[in-house]
Structures are given as C-alpha cells and as structure tokens.
Computed example of a mutant assay.
Amino acid sequence: MTAKQIRAFLAVAQSLSFAQAGERLHLSQSALSLTIKALEESLGGRLFSRTTRQVSLTPEGEALLPLARRLLVDWDNAEDHLRQRFSLQQGRVTLAAMPSFACNLLPPILKTFHSAHPRLNVTINDVINEQVIEMVRDRKVELGIAFEPQPASQLTFTALYTDRFVAVVAADSPLAQCDSIDWPMLLQAPFITLQRPSTVRILLEEHLAACDLKLSVAVESHQLATVGRLVANGLGVSAMPALCVQQMRELGAHCMTLSHPTVERPIGILTKPDHELSAAAQALFDTLVSAPLFSAGRL
C-alpha cells in the first residue's frame, strides 16, 4: 500500500461517494477509481461494494478502515518529524570533545548555536583525545573535536586552529615574573602533567625527545583540574595547550609563553568520511568552523 492509496481509500470510506472523494483529493473519478482498484488488487479483494446508486464498505473494507486511519496518522507524523529535522526545528547532535576544549572553548560556541537553533539538543561526551577518535570511528557520535590524528585513523579532519603549549607555574613563583620561558629553564622545577595515554603527555614527550630533552615527571594525574591545582599550590610546573589558559588561571596558576622547542598541534573536527551528517550535526559543524574565536587560526 502507498500513502496515496490509503488517502484515497479513507476519502471514499468517509464520504461513501467517489465524486465527493475525488473533489476532496482533487482527482477525477476515473483516476480515483484506478487508485482504489490498484489498492484492491494489491490486497487481493474488494474493499467497496459499488452499485449505480450507492457505495458501501465490504467487511474487509470495514476491517481496513481503523488500520488505515492509524497508518495515515503515523505517516503524517513521520513526514512532520523529518521536515522538522531538515528545517532544524527538531533534532539532536552527538559530540565528543577533549575535556579541555569542552570546558574552555565549547560553551560560547554552543551559546551561538542555541541562539540560532533553540530547538536542537546537543549531547556532549567529554572524553580524552583517544576516546574522541574511537567514538567517531565507531559512529557513537557524529562529530569529534580533538588534536589532528595520525593518517591511520582514516577519519576526516577539518582544522579549526593550531594550539600552542604554554608554561604553567604558581602565581607566586619567581618564574611568574618572566614574560616567557624556555623548556630547559622550565624543566629545572618538578614537572606535573597528565598520565598516559593522554595525548598531551605523549605530545610533550615526543617533542622534547626530538630536542634531546627528557621529561622527568614528579607528579601525574588524569585530570587537568588536578594538575592546575597542584601547580597553583607550588608543587611544581607544567605545560598545557593554550586553550587551558583560562582554566589554569581560575585554578590559581599563571601561564606564559613557552619556547625552545615550540610545541604545537592543530585541533579540529573529526568526522567519518563515509557517513553523511544529519542536518543538526551539519549545523553545529558550520557553527564551529565559522566561530570568530578561530578566525586567527591560532590560540
């Protein structure tokens, strides 16, 4: 059965007149008759008894009537639901993002997104970089925000900006009096950082090893907030992506430019290349790409 056939059946069943049903549906009586005939043939029997004077439902037609009404309501609801999704009046976006990004940069972007699309809902999974990649690859989320992955990830990466690592020290540390600091000087103090397999930790170790510098870790933690609080209390120093600067300051730590070597890496949106985004996810993707925060291309 098609929606057109069901509508034709209901129109005739309600009026018991092919002429009136044809006017209601803007169909000629011959076209309406052909539609009903096709429906009857597909079902295997007559739905209407027709004489020159009247039209009535057969027992099978009577049985079909309540079913047809429910089918048409479900059909109309499905059409309405999809129209709302395509017109961004309804829908949900699933997003995975590194906690540092989700906490520090995502809120103002989502504010802009919800101002433009107040009826769209967003589910945020704030997980470590490796889990962001895994969730996008396994299609558990439509969008991911992470550091640029290795080519072997087989995901599409759309760069938002390049994040440069900064030094994080206690506000009352003598180092806080400097405008900038280099790695050899920073590493003279006890170093506090995230535990493996954090991408931040791995990035630091790889860049420093390339410059014959060793990262000797005094304290390590799974949480950025814990690292920041430990540094703020004078237990050591750290290095964090620049997107964490505001968070580190709120925890009482001081951030400054860090160089020799400069550690940086692009951050962007991950999508699965063979998966078309929903209308809601595409809207969030476009909001992220056009965010003024990333217009300079670097934090």
Rank of each mutant, 00 (worst) to 15 (best):
A31Y: 09
D182S: 12
E205G: 08
A159Y: 06
P107G: 06
E130P: 00
T262M: 05
T58W: 03
H207S: 14
A171Y: 02
P266G: 15
T193R: 06
G91R: 07
L284Y: 01
L39A: 05
A11C: 10
A242W: 02
R24H: 11
L215P: 08
T51A: 05
A97D: 02
P99G: 15
V263Q: 08
R46F: 14
H207I: 03
H81K: 11
T287K: 01
L25D: 08
V122H: 14
S30H: 08
L47N: 06
Q150D: 14
E134S: 14
V237T: 07
L175V: 12
E62S: 09
T199G: 07
K214G: 07
L105V: 08
L160V: 10
M98A: 13
F147M: 06
L155C: 08
L186W: 08
K272D: 09
K111P: 12
M135T: 05
Q5L: 03
E142D: 04
G22T: 13
A38I: 03
E276F: 01
V237R: 13
Q90Y: 04
Q14A: 13
V132N: 05
L16Q: 13
I181W: 02
T287F: 09
A3H: 11
K140L: 15
A97I: 01
A225K: 05
F294L: 07
A102M: 11
V55W: 01
V93P: 01
S259N: 06
L258C: 12
R92E: 06
L208Q: 02
L39H: 06
L299G: 04
I128K: 15
E148T: 14
T58H: 03
E142H: 09
R164S: 07
R196Y: 03
S173R: 00
G228W: 01
V127L: 02
